[in-house]
Amino acid sequence: MTAAGLTVERAPRPRARGAVFDRAFEYACFAAATLLLSALGGLIFSLAIGGWPAFAKFGPAFFVRSTWNPVTEVYGASGAIVGTLVSSGLALLLALPLAMGVAIFLVELCPASLRRPIGTAVELLAGIPSIVYGMWGLFVFAPWFGRHIEVPAMTAAPPGSLWETLTTGVPNGTGILAASVILAIMILPFIAATLRELLLAIPPAVRESAYGLGSTRFEVIRKVSLPYVRIGAVGAIMLGLGRALGETMAVTFIIGNAHGFPTSIFASGATIASTIANEFAEATSDMHTAALIALGLVLFVITFAVLALARLMIAREAAR
């Protein structure tokens, strides 16, 4: 309170009443932020520790072998890894065009009065819990899917063709492709919402000049709008892929939960997440538990890689 005259540099800065808590508050905030870091560190560490016995016993064969047998205690992850990648990849393939269509519809075509209700409806699709998707998928979607998609596709397959190989299985509606369709519905709103934000952020002048040159809407979207949002779109796609890779309950209901290397998209399969959900609580031995946790670590590495890749691509594009 004595900041006057020549001693101004040495005098204590006048402080507000209660300023003693400033430090405490900053530390509290800092501690909360650090807690996040330790949560992630703990997650990785605990998965690595818990899965170590399985990595140590099976070595690289863990990733290559497709046998998963709790009775003989032989565990190989390749079936679940491939099941995860294939179901998510197919889901993305199905969801991406639809999500683009929805985003473009909401930004370009939708009457203004319907924009908000339809936008909210699509977002509600993202809010439905995955267990509800699972139940709906198993009891409502699967019977329809089996009757109207799988049976026709199998009868139409020419004998001996790749098509026939890919569609062998029991046409009861469950299986890898059915899980992919459900996953596609689940990730569609996430991709659509992000794309829509990106499209909304395009300066009007950019699109208007393209229209001014006589372009049709399709041409403006294909040659101006989409290239303009390219960077962000990669992020949106990766976000959707990340969701699909880690999705558990819906897939557990509908993929059929069969171990082994998947060869047909109509056959039952398993993903990493569905295997853990099905077996962890009833794991028969320590090695079984360890193998499941090791699977979890593999899943974490895959989703982390997807996120990091998205970041890297966005950074590289932005730097150009």
């Binding site: 703990g42 997650l43 976000l239 899943l299 996120l307």
Partner: peptide, 10 residues
């Protein structure tokens, strides 16, 4: 973006 089942494992 971490799968929720991994949080359960943790």
């Amino acid at each position: 973006s971490a799968p929720s089942i991994l949080v359960g494992l943790f």
